[in-house]
Write a protein that binds this DNA or RNA. Structure first.
Lengths: 215, 215
DNA sequence: CCTACCGATCGGTAGG
DNA sequence: CCTACCGATCGGTAGG
């Protein structure tokens, strides 16, 4: 019982530290120091640095989903829920939920050129997240809020990209307009999808290229 | 003369290594090992790890500008040049110019929560780059390719965000469609700007907010 | 959960 | 550009 509480306190701190220093920059010695416990005492909870990293990713995932995704599920499916997810993500950045900005943005760019279990765990969480955005777009199509030719994977790609851009501008440039810019970009894009049916040359950019190659 | 050649070889390798391992993960020992020279021999070229990091950022900046930005300057100013810059960036990712993906995307997300000279150098290069995109948009407005109410800073924000998203999808997800998706996103957005004048509620998202604040 | 310790590697230095 | 070395810190272990 007390062991679990300690473990939880370690991981909460580890997630914040890793959002600043990176998952490789996260060291057992520093973590122990800041939590005022011995290195070996902390180490015993995990058995290896990799296990500590994986446990930190898991706690960060729970925090992320609780803060960003779950609240949006209370909104009605389709366009309103998609908007709630996007607003939720922007709020999450503005509230500085992790002290170094979005944990998964940092982790993604730290591990995108590597291999191994840590990279796989980050990718899995990101797949889950981007998949959730994609599903929200698909529901908006199903509900008739978007035209039937809207491509959920394309829109999810774009929304996720805007999130990365907002995280960058907010944390690196300390630009408070980052949130407004991101929201404007998303709103403009999503409102455009509601004007269906759009002219054919704008409706299906992906398929147009595919066709060109096929011919 | 030979000293400069060695220095250049070190930094070329350092930029690739840092794009995978991060600028903190870049260690003098490993770099010396891979270049088959002694640690102290390599170290003597820079005097400190921080100087090595700063020199690596500078060489990466030169590579980036040579590969992405300079070729686009041959295209006529305005919309064509802006498109050339975007295509140049996507080509640069597809050609794997740095082995771990875009050096500056990785460096930006590694250092966005820190302070100090290394962070400042990364930010400065990114400011230069985003400023270049912004200028290209402004020229497109000046040339009459875009409507007069297009906001260069907003569009530069969005294009840079799409680049981050493409870098993520290409390197983490190994998704070859990343380039197509990014291009589709950019093309759709830019083509939309040419349909000026657009209805007022879509034309000026940023200024709309600014006006609201001013009143 | 602790003290005490391990070999390896870190950034950096002395001296040539 | 090298060999030889420094103190500090790394992840991890022994033993309690």
């Amino acid at each position: 019982m007390k062991g679990l509480k300690t473990r939880s306190a370690i991981l909460d701190h580890a997630a914040d530290l890793a959002s600043v220093e990176g998952l490789e920059g996260l060291t057992i010695g520093r973590l122990a120091d800041e939590l005022q416990m011995s290195k070996s005492g902390l180490f015993a909870h995990f058995g290896s640095k990799e296990e500590l990293q994986l446990a930190t990713i898991e706690i960060a995932r729970e925090r992320f989903m609780t803060e960003v995704f779950k609240p949006a599920l209370g909104t009605e499916r389709g366009y309103p829920r998609l908007v709630a997810i996007c607003r939720g993500w922007l709020d999450y950045i503005q509230r500085n939920v992790f002290s170094g900005g979005c944990f998964f943005a940092a982790a993604s760019f730290e591990f995108d050129g590597r291999s191994g279990p840590v990279r796989d765990a980050i990718k899995k969480t990101m797949d889950e997240w981007i998949g959730a955005i994609e599903k929200a777009v698909r529901l908006a199509v199903d509900e008739g809020h978007f035209g039937p030719d809207v491509e959920p994977a394309q829109i999810a790609f774009e929304i996720n990209a805007i999130f990365f851009g907002a995280n960058y501008a907010y944390n690196m440039r300390h630009d408070k307009r980052a949130i407004t810019r991101a929201w404007n970009a998303i709103e403009t894009r999503l409102e455009g999808l509601r004007q269906s049916p759009r002219p054919a040359r704008f409706a299906h950019p992906e398929k147009r290229v595919a066709r060109r190659r096929a011919s």
